[in-house]
Amino acid sequence: MTEKPFIDIRHAAKSYGTLEVLKDISLQVQKGQIVAIIGPSGSGKSTLLRAINDLDPLTKGEVWLEDMQVNKPLPPRQYERHINQMRQQIGMVFQHFNLFPHLTVRGNITLAPKMLKKLSDAEANALAERELAHVGMLDRIDYYPSQLSGGQKQRVAIARALAMEPKVMLFDEVTSALDPELVEEVNLAMKKLAEEHMTMIIVTHEMGFAQDVCDRVLFMDQGVVVEEGPPEVIFRTPKHERTKNFLRKHLQGNAQ
């Protein structure tokens, strides 16, 4: 890889007390690349993802987005301003949606663009409509989250993140809390983003989806990246015993 990485994680380490959750992880992602992170529960996938926008600060190491260091050492006040700027460029979607229940779909999407980018009501509305159309949710623009299904909520959450026009999107098991029949609509929205060459890092338990959509797959276990490569290599001919075990269990689980 000669190209300058878009996202550059350098020697990331994280401990809770004596528990080392991330152990010296380095990861480069190119612009437009789609990376899946798989691995057993507790292996540190969420922690790594949440370190990228500093939701879970690293104990050691650096995170870079293009030529900006996300976790730049700064005095608290300056850091707050800096990280709020950085986070506007890093979209994130959570397992449990985290939609704002007191706002309509429109309110959820327009809030941050209006507050942070000073868009007018008309501009923000046009933006909301565009992003909702993108995930097939335009007809629910005036609904409250409590009136939506899980799959619909998650698509709105994706639209909300996209409305900030981020450079990269982070997904943390966004279909894990959904009823099986609602998974596909969310996967479709993500596939569409993939086709538009959004840079994405996707933590997932769905091996099929990772195989279909991603350029690279990382297998994590106990705070390290055990193995990584193109999906056809990781899924068909994994080298490490831990990867093989994990995939064996997981593919079996999926077959049931």
């Binding site: 926008n53 939701l55 707050e80 301003r81 709020n84 700027q85 986070r87 506007q88 890093i90 979209g91 994130m92 959570f94 449990h96 985290n98 939609l99 704002f100 229940p101 007191h102 809030l111 941050a112 507050m115 942070l116 909300r160 993140a161 900030m164």
Partner: peptide
């Protein structure tokens, strides 16, 4: 108020004060 609400807002780039004023307190 669920912790996820705070994280959801901060992730969009809202400051701590903005998050408290616009997300946490209204809920």
């Amino acid at each position: 108020v669920d912790r996820g609400q705070y994280e959801g807002a901060r992730t969009l780039g809202l400051s701590r004060v903005q998050t408290i004023a616009r997300i946490v307190v209204p809920q």
